[in-house]
Design a binder for these strands. Sequence first.
DNA 1: CTGAAAGCGCTTACAG
DNA 2: CTGAAAGCGCTTACAG
Lengths: 346, 346
Amino acid sequence: MALDIKSFSQSIGVSTATVSRAFSGNGRISEATKERILEEAKKAGFSPNIHARRLNMKKTGLIGLYYTFADEPIFDYYIMELAQELIKAAEMRDYAIHLELGGSAKGKDVDRLAELTRGHGLDGIILVVDGRSSGLKLLKAVHDCPAAVISGMPWTPVGDEIAIELDIRSGIHEAVKELAKLGHSRIGFIRGTADEGKLAAYKEALEELGLIVDPRLIAKGPLSFADGRNAFNQLAAHSPTAVICSTDVLALGALNEAQRLGIRVPEDTSIVGMDDLAFSAFTTPSLSSIGIPRQQMAKTAVDCLLARFDMGKNLGRRASSKHVINTFFVPRSSVCKNETKKNSIN
Amino acid sequence: MALDIKSFSQSIGVSTATVSRAFSGNGRISEATKERILEEAKKAGFSPNIHARRLNMKKTGLIGLYYTFADEPIFDYYIMELAQELIKAAEMRDYAIHLELGGSAKGKDVDRLAELTRGHGLDGIILVVDGRSSGLKLLKAVHDCPAAVISGMPWTPVGDEIAIELDIRSGIHEAVKELAKLGHSRIGFIRGTADEGKLAAYKEALEELGLIVDPRLIAKGPLSFADGRNAFNQLAAHSPTAVICSTDVLALGALNEAQRLGIRVPEDTSIVGMDDLAFSAFTTPSLSSIGIPRQQMAKTAVDCLLARFDMGKNLGRRASSKHVINTFFVPRSSVCKNETKKNSIN
DNA sequence: CTGAAAGCGCTTACAG
DNA sequence: CTGAAAGCGCTTACAG
């Protein structure tokens, strides 16, 4: 049914080599015959078999993206929004992203990663990791394939992987500073999972500004909407005028609980989320957050990976590289000047 | 660097055929040698070249998903949440999803689809279409590859494609009925793009219940958060007690405008969105919506596609098939009983 | 159950 | 610029 290069080339009276050249753009071929061949191919409905092609060219045009879905879609927004930018960044380079899901649902987990990379299924692989040890495990499974690690916490390269480290702390510093500027001094914090860096940044920022770190203004989420509600409820007893949450989802919970308690946001309490997911701009009030330059991250990952892939053909040794991506405060209506005198919670 | 089957098989003293059998599971091979080979492979770091494999087996283990990203991520939540379910459904069958982006950014658009499908890059392709004509264009580009069309509006198969039609009307009927049960009679509607079906369902449902269709209670979004705000503002002048919106994003806008106008949701006006995106459960108030059985849709698409792929090897002619997926009302706190006597908007 | 060999559909030195 | 031929790394009849 599907035409192959042999019969197609015969049917138009040229060699397979010539047809191949017309499609690949490699090798010398006259413009005229190239155009003619491409046109005939369209007419006849011929496209080169992609696998035979990749087998020969040792290039797939594919970059893998490996991560593990959460159970609830809301927790996957983060990776989905990142994936979108990666897809776009890859497209600019005529590459596609191959989504590869982690999770040991079938006990395979990391094996699949080894198979894919060693089997030449990918020209590069992006690992989105959520911790050092799990990240190392993944990285160890990758063979014969340039790898980039995207990490929300500090990542020191262990091998020749490209490290892309999101510096969430810079954004937190900025947020705290802005809040202080708006007259807030009782700034609370709702913790997430594996958030030592975030917490430390929050404390540091307060101290730099000469504000006191009050442990009663720190509550543990760590994850869900309900967690955010509970945590905010705890904090409310100690009248923070602003609360920073480790994720946007926690912030949604905080927003909800505030409303239930009759605490107005932002008039009584300002609320700030983290990650600036797309929906955050469209809540009521719109949620302030810590923004992530996703496009920059994606471009860095893709470009570095492809650079390494191209190098890999020539050079032997490859050095690791590390890129730190700064975050920033995104103020929206969930934040305003502190006018705390006016309200009298408990 | 990377081991191939020839040197690997030599190194452990068997033929390439035997190694191949150990990996593929096809052909007769003793358990003992199979296990031994797999173990040795792990030790030596051998994985079969995936392209050589696919070239021979005429099977890729890949299902394509084709659609076009919007400019703003918020409008891609719909497809992202669907993609997630497709990925999971594919995984159950040991398949992966290959995301292929549409958009004529490079004027290629549909050509790429032809290349991919004709070049044996995929075992099946899922087209998420948003209109008849664009859907037909895509479908026409697909060759030599089983295709499934997922459509938010009625889709009559034109060829042998699998049609998966989302019946949003059933959910709208349910929502209107529930609202009526709650005492609402002035139920407004905010229109979306290409929403004739939705609008018709809304009108039908009202009429079935003996309620009057008031054109002043119908406003046009059609798309963005800001559109939702504007539309709600228009409707507010005519005091609907409930408003159904063509998308969740429009509903978020409506929610926002209601708050700005001092209209309480749901006490003064109930609001219902459509598509039930994951974030809708976590707004304040939580957004009622029309739910989509995404998992079912995904499973249907993947299973039908793979069934057809397997058939394709044997049979010639293939019949089209059509699957209608019902939607349903998801009540949340943005909806309550109509107590309209209490409020007196203009 | 296992091996030797042909073949999957391309690409790319190698000649010309 | 073009063609004949070897080769990419597997799989699968075909023998045994």
